[in-house]
Write a protein that binds this DNA or RNA. Structure first.
Lengths: 359, 359
DNA sequence: TTGAAAGCGCTAACAT
DNA sequence: ATGTTAGCGCTTTCAA
């Protein structure tokens, strides 16, 4: 016991921080005044403010976040929930997504002076426990959920029940009404991709979808259908094959589509597009001459393959940033849930679709 | 003003949480007893404990983290500093590293009931401000620094000055003495790689290094030198070319080494090894027949190229996990700084080195 | 424009 | 084994 005490005081020896009280004394004012200064409130005489500011600067004072959070009943911390195990992240072959999302979130959060608590699911842990741990943590004012293939419904239900502010990054399953999210318009994007291929004269346009329990996969398929119909082509469901967003599934899906004699393919992810590319080249065919490809995401990968990939670019960082400011708006009462945002995407034309004349 | 108040109370309507006091009342005990129960302390009669536990369960009570942190002067939160901009992360072509590290950290932290605050540098912000923001945040008990190519010396100096617990993931520059870190034994690893090539009969073994201001790059080069000498080969510095860990630099480095007539190459990263592979194949030569390659990292990439890459596997997640428990040990006074750990690596033999007979 | 004082929800002596 | 009490460092009325 006494040992613990000694250890603690020794540890703190060089670390001991000032508190409001001490700053107030040094500056010859009350704690309330110092509090007003650090919170940038009005009704502080400029002279007084300067005096206090000088002491703060000299002493390198920084307020104790826990005390502030306790008094304000607000922590200025938001949580980031990544409901995906590392295995999933790597298997999806899209390791870029999460770093970009995290960067987008922290960026936006920090510029509003919020810190971010990171929650990642790990494979050894069951989801229930994971979500419970998050829910028990009272150090957050709100939650950002990076949607995944796994089902975070328990978490969402709980959050709704206790009326805790949260925003989902990506569109949630259709069954969820009235929750806030920021996603992209997958239907419109896929439609544009397919329409583009049709405009280039392709007649038998196939598609390799994502896992169909996934909302984004569903919407991209819907966009494909609409694109086909709007282009005046016959809709042929034998040209639709279910993939899983991964390279392998793109490769295998393409093998199937080759048998169907397609002259173009819309892959619901760049990674699958690359898999498809391999299958085509292995079959001795050429892209885009024999078969045109359009992918989805615009990963760095898209420019690293030959031919470079025509693809749909989605604004990942922007999505994350908007979700973050939305959450903060919700927390601070400046916005009312649900806030639902769908961001536009952009068709990036490179060499795999044949729109560009070579040489 | 009154509007704000209304908004607040409305918002809290369904959210209002119990506090210790109320739990104590419901259970007919004092706050101290409830506190003992939730902190798993001894000296609580089993019967009492159960009674309290039941109320907690019924009411879904969870302690307020801010209040607890204030009283304990400990937050049970550690910070993760990623002093790399997204641009750097992507340019390094190793997007796998960070997700794995983050997973390793959160994993270990959560199992000790610590939460993790994530700090990422963004390109629009200067490093100084970034570090200052981190240092001002008083919501953390310690810091994990994911070492990078950029210089985090300001941060490290400050942390040392205020005696704030921190651990670096990867070996810091040699100029830092007495700080805690968890890295891998780069020298031994590189030496093993080179020795392996020599054992296979290779005589002119070149190397493509990382950026030489980087400690890991330096150590891998040192390991290369030692490996050459230990194998009884003449050390020839014209066989050393500086790369930058990126694919392009591997490609270009290999072009140079081809002119030097090497029969093997040790690339200080898998990504560079892949670049080198391309250069070799472009020159019409074969791997491993004409030139053998050993890489470093064992990324998923290593098994996705043809031939698959013989490489040094480093335990990234383990490194992160050990750094985390070390930090927590430091925070809780169970360990004394500096704690310096070097983890062993493992040579993974695949097809690019020629050790395996094909077919 | 400033100060006094009462919390915020919890922990940790100290008593009992 | 349990209760009492005094903080932890800040914010926020309220009064001056």
């Amino acid at each position: 016991m006494s040992r613990n005490l000694r250890t603690l005081s020794e540890k703190d020896a060089g670390t001991k921080r000032m508190n409001l009280e001490q700053v107030a004394q040094k500056a010859g004012v009350s704690r309330a005044t110092v509090s007003r200064v650090i919170n940038d409130e009005q009704y502080v005489r400029e002279e007084t403010r300067q005096k206090v500011l000088r002491v703060i600067e000299e002493e390198g004072y920084a307020p104790n976040a826990a005390a502030r959070a306790l008094a304000k009943r607000q922590t200025e911390v938001i949580g980031i929930v990544v409901p995906d195990t590392l295995e999933n992240i790597l298997v999806n072959d899209n390791p870029y997504y999460y770093p970009i999302v995290l960067q987008g979130i922290t960026n936006a959060a920090h510029s509003d002076d919020y810190a971010t608590l990171l929650w990642m699911l790990h494979s050894s842990e069951d989801e229930r426990r994971y979500y419970q741990r998050i829910l028990k943590n009272r150090l957050m004012d709100g939650l950002l959920i990076v949607a995944s293939v796994t089902t975070e419904s328990f978490l969402i239900d709980e959050l709704q029940r206790i009326k805790f502010p949260f925003v989902i990054i990506s569109q949630p399953p259709r069954s969820y009404e009235g929750i806030s999210y920021v996603g992209i318009d997958n239907v419109a994007a896929a439609q544009e991709a397919v329409h583009h291929l049709a405009q280039l004269g392709r007649k038998r346009i196939g598609t390799i979808t994502g896992k169909m329990h996934n909302r984004e996969a569903q919407d991209r398929l819907r966009g494909y259908e609409q694109g086909i119909k709007l282009s005046g082509l016959p809709y042929d469901e034998t040209l639709v094959v279910e993939g899983a967003f991964s390279r392998d599934s793109g490769y295998n899906g393409m093998k199937y589509l080759l048998d169907q004699g397609v002259d173009a393919v819309f892959a619901a992810s760049d990674v699958m597009a690359v898999g498809a590319l391999e299958a085509i080249q292995e079959a001795g065919l050429h892209v885009p001459e024999d078969i045109a490809i359009v992918g989805f995401d615009d990963l760095p990968l898209a420019t690293q393959v030959k031919p470079t990939l025509t693809t749909i670019r989605q604004p990942i960082a922007k999505k994350a940033a908007i979700a973050t400011s939305t959450l903060i708006g919700l927390i601070e009462g400046r916005m009312q849930a649900p806030v639902q945002v769908l961001l536009p995407t952009q068709l990036v034309i490179r060499n795999s679709c044949g729109a560009k004349q070579k040489g």
